[in-house]
């Protein structure tokens, strides 16, 4: 294998790890804050409709994501994070 190929493979592995790491952290925050079972936390699960969150829970979740991933989520973008999958996608794209 050429060195450059190795680098590509390594990089994609790192990225994958980075991604699954974010997803698993997001899931564990949701389990912790909403007191739900881990297998309920599917990508399409909505915080309010499926996981029993009220408006304050949702605010707290966003704040926990900000704290965990050291970023600031503007309100207009936070409004679009309503499912587990949306949270993971947003954080994978924006987390440092």
């Amino acid at each position: 294998m050429k060195f450059t190929e190795f680098r590509v493979i390594l990089q994609s592995k790192l990225t994958q790890n980075h991604m699954s790491d974010i997803a698993s952290k997001v899931r564990s925050i949701i389990v912790d804050k909403l007191g739900v079972d881990e297998n309920e936390v599917t990508p399409e699960a909505s915080f309010t409709n499926d996981l029993g969150a009220d408006s304050l829970d949702t605010v707290e979740l966003i704040m926990e994501f900000e704290k965990e991933f050291n970023l600031s989520i503007p309100d207009d973008q936070a409004e679009n994070i309503q499912t587990v999958g949306q949270a993971i996608t947003y954080l994978e794209a924006n987390a440092k």
Partner: peptide, 9 residues
């Protein structure tokens, strides 16, 4: 400020 939304209640 990073006050928790449950702080007041």
């Amino acid at each position: 400020p990073k006050f928790n939304p449950f702080f007041v209640p």
